[in-house]
Design a protein around this nucleic acid. Structure first.
Lengths: 224, 224
DNA sequence: CGGCTTTTGTCATGGAACTGTCATACAACC
DNA sequence: GGTTGTATGACAGTTCCATGACAAAAGCCG
């Protein structure tokens, strides 16, 4: 699980953040002072650090500099002050992002994800979408069935991704033509052909598809 | 010089941003539509892209997704809308940061610097990696197959390291050109040639590569 | 420097894989 | 049974990739 360390002196805000982060699926821990936070990060490094700027004793800027000195953990400043000078100073000190309180937890979570993605090399995980025995990994550019890689062409891959993105929902041939091929108009049979080819590759029994199903008169959908 | 591409339909804002960025020492160019921006970035990739969300035609979110599809240039959204939903959606689409207009140029500049800094961390050296019977030691600058050292040239080594660093993930020829050769643009065949030469050296059967595989239409990847 | 080797980048070619169209056969619906 | 919509095999045109040949550039050494 992704661990987050929150360095913030205001108890209420710190606890609220911790709760919200855990709600979002993070493992969160807190520190009330910069010194405490630095110690925690040294002993048991988290994957992200959130820092307030106004801290008693060692201030936020110095805290960021010290964190950065022996670690390149992503640092996000969470501050009440919306002041260009502070923002610039914090970023210069080594922070990666700066958000202003009060902050929507969804935004914070999205920003943390964005930071992780930038640093994904460090955590080399390859996310994949899973549909039963079917796995689709955009990063690896491959599709697996029952763990075995299946060779699909680029068009088939895009088609599959498009269907996967809207899993469980019907997509009309027109929509697919537009989204996969970029055609504003075109022969809808084209979609049939590619769906057929895809089925040959990803369905155990292509004649009785279980994932990539036809909805007569409507289009196709991918179901789990 | 660091190049920035600004995709923004409002002429006044775009020009103001361009001027301010140049003032800050960037080489800035602008595009009034997403389509234009995507074309520019394909033809002559900038180091950063700033994009507005509300664009005529293709909207900002789609623009971000397409930019992200063939490039991992840092993308910063510059939008008038300060809405959690928009922020989350933009970051999910692949943006790296989101700032609200009107934006202080100093802050923007600091955020761009922070992004660049984070990007560099990724390209740091990696210790030895093992792919089956293939060993890559970045420190020793040496490659071994089945225990025996293999003589590879500098370019081949860099190419291999780049692929190894992103093991399991597809890297497009464009990405490789940029990361290995530092070319912002160039003939993609060049990559093919070097991949071919590398295969001659590291693959038992170069015609049927097991590690350094081609993903037609996508690029190459190194797999374990 | 001057000749040599190695490495690098460009180009052309052939061949493999992919795409879209079409015709035909099949299935579902009324 | 007629009609409509879908599956599928075959085919030609195209795109994409591997590879060998070659020239330019870089490195090496006397």
């Amino acid at each position: 699980m992704t661990a987050v360390l929150v360095i913030e002196d205001d108890d209420r805000i710190r606890l609220a953040l911790l709760l919200a982060l855990e709600e979002e699926g993070y493992s969160a821990s807190g520190a009330a002072t910069a010194e405490e936070g630095l110690r925690r990060q040294r002993e048991e490094p988290a994957d992200h650090v959130l820092v307030d700027l106004m801290l008693p004793g060692l201030d936020g800027f110095e805290c960021i500099r010290r964190l950065r000195r022996d670690d390149d953990v992503p640092i996000v400043v969470v501050s009440a002050r919306d002041d260009t000078h502070d923002i610039v100073a914090a970023l210069e000190a080594g922070a990666d992002d700066y958000v202003v309180k009060p902050v929507a937890i969804k935004e914070l979570s999205a920003r943390l994800r964005a930071l992780r993605r930038r640093g994904r090399v460090l955590t080399d995980a390859v996310p994949a979408q899973v549909f039963g025995d079917l796995e689709i990994s955009a990063e690896a550019g491959e599709v697996r069935r029952a763990g075995r890689p299946v060779a699909v062409t680029r068009t088939e891959f895009r088609l599959l991704c498009e269907l996967a993105e809207h899993a469980g929902r019907v997509l009309s041939r027109q929509q697919l033509l537009r989204r996969v091929w970029g055609y504003e108009t075109g022969d809808e049979r084209l979609v049939d052909v590619h769906v057929g080819r895809l089925r040959q590759k990803i369905e155990p029994d292509p004649a009785n598809p279980r994932h990539l199903v036809t909805l007569r008169g409507l289009g196709y959908k991918l179901q789990r």
